[in-house]
Nucleic acid binder design. Structure first.
Lengths: 143, 143
DNA sequence: CAAATTATTGCAAAAATTCGCAATAGAGAA
DNA sequence: TTCTCTATTGCGAATTTTTGCAATAATTTG
């Protein structure tokens, strides 16, 4: 985690914002919690480290990082979950039946992104696409 | 709208559910409100027609239709919006700066869907993909 | 290093969304 | 049509998320 602090700090300060202890803690926590986590789960974790930290601050902090595109927010199985955006662009296949989430490298989306840019001038965020559907397992078990 | 009632009614009853006046009204309302609408906007509209109808019922009804995949729920510009799923599969390009939404026919996604099915056994819901990014207008105005 | 500026926090209240449960009312059977 | 069964509604309360504002603390300026 610590190796991230410098990067983040510069990235944030360059835009006139501040990397406060609260924000650092949320980032570190999200880093420690491997994959997706709900606001509530994040608050519980963070709260253990810094009891004074308010829930509203957690929500605002998450929203703040989402806007900076350091973390991604998505709806998975009816829950709003947050995830640290890593180095590797990837997208999510979310099963609407079992809520299982598969992550795929974004290579298969590159052509689509190119096409969107050329034809529509739209610069797609490759690394935060959620595709709903039915996974192989559920397709097999319910024909 | 009325021509929908039969289709919907059968579709819903076939699964053991009921097409109540409340549900019909929500569908009709969503049909009348051209594009995306928030739960609040829908409630306001619906409430004018049927004042006794409770907010909780609106939320439950929307969730119900989302599960039946008759309406789609997405996060656009930080708001949760609902939209009647039409006949034409399409996807959304949402600009993260101006929240403008473009709708595109799903043809460009067909290859991707095929690939997902063949390689991962994942049956993607083509008609409800939201791709975030920056639209042509915003890219031009903020270089 | 002190003062000034302003982004950020904590708090409490508001707003949005969900939930439990008794009452209601569709849909099918008799 | 009437009866039965159970999905659905309305209501109020609980939970989650957002917001306004004064207090705090991180930068910048002098």
């Amino acid at each position: 985690m610590s190796h991230h602090h410098l990067d983040f700090s510069q990235l944030i300060r360059a835009q006139g914002y501040r990397l406060t202890p609260q924000r650092q803690l949320v980032l570190d926590t999200l880093c420690a919690m491997s994959s997706h986590a709900t606001a509530c789960e994040i608050y519980d974790q963070v709260s253990a480290q810094m009891p004074a930290l308010n829930q509203a601050t957690v929500y605002r902090t998450l929203e703040f990082f989402v806007e900076l595109r350091l973390i991604a927010k998505s709806d998975i199985g009816g829950q709003t979950v947050y995830e640290l955006v890593g180095e590797q662009p990837h997208y999510h296949l979310v099963c609407r039946q079992c809520s299982h989430v598969a992550e795929l490298a974004a290579t298969q989306l590159a052509d689509l992104a190119d096409w969107l840019l050329v034809e529509h001038g739209f610069q797609a965020d490759l690394d935060h696409v959620v595709i709903q559907g039915v996974c192989a397992g559920c397709r097999a078990s319910s024909p």
